[in-house]
Design a protein around this nucleic acid. Structure first.
Lengths: 235, 235
DNA sequence: CAATTGTCCAGGGAAAACCCCAGAGGCGCC
DNA sequence: GGCGCCTCTGGGGTTTTCCCTGGACAATTG
């Protein structure tokens, strides 16, 4: 029962170490300081359980988890996050094997909750922080869950692209782009021009605002997309 | 030399207490758990130094600082923040008396840095975290520093309002709104339609993206504005 | 005082965003 | 097979946003 945990913040790492030493005894503990290191160490020591901070330099916790699960699918993974962002839940959902055990705990969790999550995952169960229960629900709700096409469009307008630019980048017609946007607006519940007698919105900006508010996107994610799409454009 | 510190997170509060006990000896320490409590305690015990987390329930650290400085202008204030958001620096700049001592430290600061900031403020100096030096610079640069009119416009489009809606809310003509937006775009360095041969942007959304990226605005701030402006609209 | 800067306002024009309608192909599911 | 869902497509429209030029006023600054 080996445990690996990765976090770039000294303070959080210390907290986690103390916590695990006291409460989950007799497990060898290993520390990593970023995502890259976590992956390398995991492959070497083949831990049963991995704690990963989401926000880490070099390699995000999500991507680290992806690589680790690729090589060692039976590893238990517990994500640590400061935020209840839906983006991450989305991504995690994709990379975790259907029968895999994983946990998602927010950093403001109590010590007991972390221990609980730890025990659950070690015994093959999942543990989801109460604070993101509703987020999980939303990702499984038909009416509000975005398709990947809609999500792509959302990212693009969030970066400030025009319909025309999006069409070029994604190899679509402008009509297709507008079609995606239309259904995106509908799913986010943004009233159209005719509807809703008083409040008038610029749907494009409103969509960005709501998406941010719901944690569908966040600045870090967008910056990565910007780098990706920008590079494609330059070529 | 009394010290008061306020933070809603148990973990951070414990960290701060230990740190101060060990390094800044012989000062009575007082804890508050939110902004409101911090203000009340400050008025009672009249501390020489106050640590305030920016993100707190009931009353934000900024607002708490404002109220404390109103009653006790000679209090030294050190803000603790997770982020290097320009919004907060903007706001802090306004409420701190010109000759007041204050500090701004990010939460990922080392223990030494916190002690250093503490000592500086106690002896009447300011201490600004290295990570936000450039942000401070920008707030004082003519070409990039937004006027309050431009900032208002920025907030409004970030919330997803149309020109027309903004005009109504702010009691302006649409032309005036567009005028504000135009200079906002210019200051953010967003190329217009004709310029910049290839890259085409939807300036409105692009402005929101860049403003978020630079920390001019953030979700929490926007939510507060939304509540404020929404209420005004309902009346 | 003059010069600068920020703000507001105007008209007219081009482009982008959004609206409604409808249809067709692909996909998985019962 | 029939059904629903997602997606792209088309035509033909309205509204909004953005552009340009230009003027007026107040406050600040040299």
């Amino acid at each position: 029962m080996t445990i690996l945990f990765a976090d770039d913040e000294d303070r959080d790492r210390g907290w986690l170490r103390n916590l695990l030493e006291e409460n989950v005894k007799d497990h060898p503990l290993h520390e990593a300081h970023d995502g890259q290191e976590a992956v390398e160490m995991a492959i070497k020591i083949k831990p049963d359980l991995v704690f990963l901070d989401i926000k880490m330099p070099n390699l995000s916790g999500i991507k680290a988890a992806e690589q680790i699960l690729e090589k060692l699918p039976s590893t238990g993974v517990i994500m640590l996050s400061n935020f209840s962002d839906e983006v991450y839940v989305r991504q995690l959902w994709k990379i975790v094997p259907p029968d895999g055990a994983f946990g998602y705990v927010l950093k403001n969790a109590s010590n007991e909750q972390v221990v609980e999550a730890c025990r659950a995952v070690l015994s093959g169960d999942c543990w989801i922080h109460p604070g993101i229960a509703r987020v999980i629900q939303r990702t499984q709700n038909r009416a509000t869950n975005l398709t990947s096409a809609e999500y792509e469009a959302l990212v693009c307008i969030s970066l400030g692209m025009t319909d025309h630019t999006i069409a070029k980048r994604l190899f679509l017609t402008e009509k297709a782009v507008q079609s995606r946007l239309k259904s995106l607006y509908a799913k986010l519940g943004i009233p159209g021009r005719g509807e809703s007698n008083e409040t008038e919105f610029n749907q494009r900006c409103r969509a960005v605002y709501l998406a941010n508010k719901r944690g569908l996107i966040n600045q870090q994610e967008l910056d990565e997309w910007e780098a990706k799409l920008g590079a494609k454009a330059g070529a």
